[in-house]
Every structure is written in C-alpha cells, then in structure tokens.
C-alpha cells in the first residue's frame, strides 16, 4: 500500500514501540536512576538529599575504592593486550592462509567455545590452575617440578589467563573482518614495488587492519571491566574488581549512592576509553585513504 512519509513513520513507530518501551522502562529508566542516586547522599539503606559530588570525590580519594578501580583497570588492560596480541596472528592466518571454502569452518570453530556456559569455563580454570590441579599434576607427572606451582594463588595472573581465554573469540572476529577487507592487490603492489613480505605487512596490512584491532580492543575491554564471575571464582573473592565492589556497596553495605557512583564511574571509564579508541580509529581510516 502506498504511503506518505508520515504514514510510513507512524507504522515504523507503531512496530518499534513494544521493544522501545521495554528498553526505556527496563534499561534507560534504571540507568537514569543510578545516575541520580550517584549524586545523592546516603548511608546504610537510605538514600536522600542533598545532591552531592561527595561519592565521586570519595572514589578518587579513599584508597579502598581507588585501589580496586586501579586494579580493575590494570587487569582489563592486560587482558585486552594479551587477547588482542594473541588473536591477531590467528585472524591473519584464517584470512590469508586458509582457503576461502574453509574460512567459515575455522570461524565457527573459534566461536563455539564462546557459546558454552561462561560459569563452567571460568570454573574449569579453577580446577586447571588450582593447588594440585591439572597443571600442577601434569608438571609433577612430567618431572618438571616437585612442588605444586599453584598458579591460582596468584589471583591477578590467573584472572588474566581466565579472562584472556574467555574473550578470545571476541578479539579474533573484528580483526578477521578488517583483514578480509584488505585489497589483496595492494599487497601484490607492495611487493611489486620492491618491499619485502615483512615490510609489506608493516606498511600496508597492519595499518589497514587497525580499525579491526581497535574494535577488538573495545569489545574485549568493555566486558572485562565489569566482570564479576572471575574475581569471585578465580580470585576467591580476595582480589575484588569493580563489579564485586559494586555488589558490596549496593547489597552488602546497602549504600546505593556509593554503589551507583562506582557504576557511573565504570561507565565513564568505558565511555572515555571507547571515545579515545573511536577517535584513533578515525585517524587510521583517515590516514589510510
């Protein structure tokens, strides 16, 4: 049936309204509430006026908060770095060295682990890395060591291993997509102009795939900043990260304004990092044209 634009817009709005209303009520409204709570005064179980920025100044000044925030950022950055550096060669391999008919299979293989239970995957690392666990028993069995190594006792190292494993597929896919877009004749042109394979990679392929690398960084960094399960299971609750601190403030201490302020701060960090990387991305795209 023919439609004037306004008629079309009405139909569009009518259709979008159920999911949109759902998102407004259950996402936008709660996020707005958290935002408002974060600038209110509160104590155990109470939220009240006046509006204040005290919660945020506490976050920066009190070592209790600051150390957790710093640790969270450190872990997220290290996980992101590890994941992306490990993922690049595999994305490169699938894009450049796997025949086109088998690429889908490889990607499927890489993504499958992501779709299995997150809790189970994290828990498995506990049994793998733990005291006299699979790593220890294997090493002792092979005669490489006499004493259990017990990697799990080093909370941060084991968290990084676990998270790097959990988010690996996230990093491979965007890099792969950007590598696929690299015009193969550019590489031949590079070599034709006398560049070695390595130099062609550094001067052509790597810059052209930077948007994918940046997307990978974001896609790994964002969820790891808010990870809750890994510090609980792997760190044994002894090395809390931001998510655990939010839980403590919100539920155990019943201090919603401080909990909200931490949540807002986490979103701010995510937001700032995203913006920085999106800007970097622009520069790379601009530079490559």
């Amino acid at each position: 049936m023919a439609k004037t634009p306004s008629q079309e817009a009405k139909t569009g709005w009518l259709l979008i309204s159920p999911p949109a209303i759902y998102a407004v009520l259950l996402l936008a409204a709660p996020l707005a509430t958290v935002l408002i709570y974060s600038v209110m005064t509160g104590g155990r179980g109470v939220v009240g006026l006046p509006f204040t920025l005290q919660n945020f100044t506490d976050l920066v000044q009190k070592p209790v908060y600051l150390s957790v925030m710093q640790r969270s950022l450190l872990v997220s950055l290290l996980v992101t770095l590890t994941t992306v550096v490990l993922a690049y060669p595999i994305a490169y391999f699938v894009s450049f060295h796997v025949s086109p008919s088998k690429k889908a299979l490889w990607l499927f293989l890489i993504t499958i682990p992501f779709w299995t239970s997150y809790v189970i995957r994290v828990s498995l690392w506990r049994t793998i890395l733990g005291y006299n666990g699979i790593v220890d028993s294997s090493l002792i069995g092979l005669g490489l060591t006499d004493e259990p190594v017990n990697i799990l006792s080093n909370g941060i190292t084991s968290m990084i291993i676990t998270l790097a494993h959990a988010y690996a597929p996230f990093a491979v896919l965007p890099i792969f997509v950007s590598l696929e877009k690299v015009d193969r004749s550019l590489l031949e042109a590079g070599q034709d102009l006398g560049e070695s394979r390595l130099m062609t990679f550094i001067r052509v392929t790597l810059p052209l795939s930077m948007p994918g690398v940046i997307a990978a960084v974001l896609i790994v960094f964002i969820p790891t900043v808010g990870d809750y399960v890994t510090p609980e299971l792997i760190g044994g609750g002894k090395v809390p990260l931001i998510a655990n601190m939010i839980e403590t403030q919100m539920l155990k201490l019943q201090n919603r304004p401080v909990g909200s302020a931490i949540a807002v701060a986490a979103m701010l960090v995510v937001g700032i990092v995203s913006v920085v990387f999106v800007l970097l991305n622009r520069r790379f795209i601009g530079g490559s044209k």
């Binding site: 634009p5 079309e8 817009a9 139909t11 569009g12 709005w13 259709l15 979008i16 999911p19 949109a20 998102a23 407004v24 259950l26 996402l27 936008a28 709660p30 996020l31 509430t33 958290v34 974001l218 964002i222 969820p223 900043v225 808010g226 990870d227 809750y228 931001i242 998510a243 939010i246 839980e247 919100m250 909990g259 949540a263 986490a266 979103m267 995510v270 995203s274």
Partner: peptide, 28 residues
Amino acid sequence: YRWPGKAVVMGMIMVPLVLPEMIVAMAL
C-alpha cells in the same frame, strides 16, 4: 520503514551489548 529517531531508539535497544552486564543487573 523510515522513521525519525531510528538511530537513538535502535541504539538504546542494542546498548546492553556494550554495557558491562553487572551494571545492567545492578541498575535494574
């Protein structure tokens, strides 16, 4: 359909993809 405000509304629906789940859960 073409309708004004599509980018904002669709963005809001898709935002849980890029928000730490803990924050979604706690806000809710």
